[in-house]
Design a protein around this nucleic acid. Sequence first.
DNA 1: TCTGGGGTCCTAGGACCC
DNA 2: TCTGGGGTCCTAGGACCC
Length: 430
Amino acid sequence: MQAIVDCNSFYCSCERLFRPDLRNRPVVVLSNNDGCIISRSDEAKKLGVGMAGPYFQARHLIGKNDVAVFSSNYPLYGDLSRRVMDTLRILTEHTKENRKVEVYSVDEAFLDLSDIPPRELYEYALHIRNTVEQWTGISVSVGVAPTRTLAKLANGMAKKNKEATRCVVALLTQEEQRIALQQTRVDSIWGVGRSYATKLINWGITSAWELCNMPEAWAHRNMGGVVGVRLVRELRGIPAIVMEEELVNKKMIATTRMFGRPVTELYELKEAVATYISRAAEKLRRQQSAAGIVSVFIVPKEQDHSADFKHGATVSSYITLPKPTALTHELIKAAVGLVEGLFERGKEYKKAGVMLSGLVPDDSVQGNLFAPASQNQHRFLMHTLDNINFSMRDDAVKFGSSGTDKNWKMRQELRSGRYSTRWEELRQVK
DNA sequence: TCTGGGGTCCTAGGACCC
DNA sequence: TCTGGGGTCCTAGGACCC
């Protein structure tokens, strides 16, 4: 059996943890640039605040109902996430194999419960739920089932009805699974997004149970080949998605941001791109990789507002480096060159991003016999720079090309303190 | 005159996730 | 006025090889 442990309204719960006065008040957390609503407390959901909707559209509702609003505070959420995951690891340590927890995202993890006797599963899950809340202050929901997709489905049922289920739902028998599938709409299955949902409904398939009964060949033809087959099997209780072998390195590293205001000058775009590259290069070095391909994209402000804003007229280009590198200045040089090619005078830009791909392990990078000895010093410099930025504060030391004013930076007007990772921002009680 | 078939690698783009 | 950011996997199709 598999379990998925998923934090309830995670970002909102994190904010509330340090603001007990908000316990019964509706809370929402905004995306970067204060653009969209990405987390809502139950009270906010009840008010009808939509998920992932633009903040400005919900503003009226929020103002009228005394909703507490926060910009996202990733240092805080990251730290609390680590505490929750550590707790899960401790709770599952008694099992023989050491790797029973697979962190799936910042607020959820899969647990392998194959060596827990079926009769004890529900109590076991409940114990996990209660202990995580007691130790970290974060409340979670747990779904238990033979496959990951069914576990997700169970988790959704637990979240929907917290009191009755005590935030734990286990679908252990075929009978329980059938009823759950019949009650679940096809568009809330894990792995069915907007586009497949529309297709399925047009075909007259509206419940998860109906999809579960479609032949595999049909799923292969109509739902993305092997992906569709796996999905149908998972619904039937046949595991088709398995635990990851181990934490693997990323295959691509991206840093992209909206600007706080429209940007018209080339030098500002270059500063932004150099800043993003510095970030991405840090991530690159953290996993001891080097990048062989640098891509850059910039997004002009739409003239046509009726168009889908996510599919604007993005312009992008990429370059394959002569040799993979993890050195920030080499990556910046490549990226800045690309921006110069993409930029058009007279246009307003709202977003830019960089991507590093073609990643290889850094130690496997072929040394060049004729490279100057200074190469190794560069490497040492990068290491020092990362250490300073990690221990002091972000960007304490940086490259001049990143700019100093950065008045294009994103808006983040409502951020709470980084209570648990910065001494200066420690919460004070009188 | 008749001009195959199978394999690999790469890229672009679609779909999904949180 | 104001719509996030960072990933993954898969497929199709083209280029190339023998």
